[in-house]
Nucleic acid binder design. Structure first.
Lengths: 155, 155
DNA sequence: GCAAATTGTTTGAACTTCAAATTATTTCTT
DNA sequence: AAGAAATAATTTGAAGTTCAAACAATTTGC
């Protein structure tokens, strides 16, 4: 149980939550106070999905790991709030495609800027060389979680 | 917008969620399926608080960033499920102290083991030297979020 | 000893999420 | 081409989470 071990553990437990709360606080004080973290992430996913033309309801639900029913209601409120709108696909009219409004795009841009501030602030604390190693470490973390979706024990 | 920048951003957006879902999946397949991630974390906090004798309701609520009322209900269900129990403090009978049962301690142990697997798996992907740098990076992330609780923009 | 403060609980409302049932549309089989 | 099966999204009903505000019990300070 080395110092590195316990620091990394502490990171995973605590900083993790810090990040989430920073996001929350940021939204509450930002331009669009009536957006929850979840809703902001859906808007982000909708904007991102435009690029790949993968902006159907089920694809977005999938990317957010929620059921189709849940996404329907989320999109409903986001539509009511004026951040996104729906259009039936002409090819297959069962399919609903979701698009960001100008307001939605603007919210996403502000959100991207938040990310940018966050990341560049972290990077400025590291030397160029250290940044490289750090990113390599992140890659390891990433791979671990992407290849080992199931473990035993719980958090 | 370097490669490091976008990788770090990707990490913050995606891996973050992976971790949460890994925890969830792990709990659902683990020994105590009727525990949510939130509940597991409260049990963890209760076990940890024993050490400092800081196991009052409000201290634990604070550590979890929920209101006192919310903690009351969470502790209520955890008590009903047999993971924790309450005792009035003899010194100040307004104060309620919360203790883990044997079952609660066991759940926490399994949970700690999950963390251990997670962390050691990550560390095994890095050399000793790289681990040191990585931990330094984590420290920077940590400090950033702990000193800058409020930003503008949102996630 | 009484007023104010503190600690925890209850209550009511709003929100989130899911599974299952439902609707609309397309694809497959013959 | 008709009908059955499959697919995409929505609706519905239930369970769970969270909070703020009101409340109850107890302690502290004057």
């Amino acid at each position: 149980m080395s110092k590195e071990y316990s620091e990394m553990n502490h990171f995973l437990v605590n900083v993790f939550n810090e990040i989430l709360r920073t996001e929350e606080a940021s939204l509450k004080t930002g331009a669009y106070k009536n957006l929850s973290v979840r809703e902001m992430h859906v808007i982000e996913a909708v904007c991102f999905a435009q690029k790949n033309h993968s902006n159907t309801a089920s694809e977005i639900a999938n990317s957010q790991n929620v059921t189709a029913g849940t996404l329907t209601t989320t999109i409903g409120t986001l539509e009511r709030k004026g951040f996104v709108f729906r259009r039936h696909d002409q090819r297959d009219r069962r399919v609903v495609r979701i698009f960001p409004t100008e307001k939605g795009k603007n919210a996403n841009e502000i959100h991207q800027q938040f990310h940018h501030e966050m990341v560049s602030s972290i990077m400025s604390a590291l030397s160029e060389e250290e940044t490289l190693v750090f990113v390599k470490g992140l890659g390891a973390v990433q791979r671990f979680f992407e290849t080992k979706p199931k473990m035993n024990g719980g958090t």
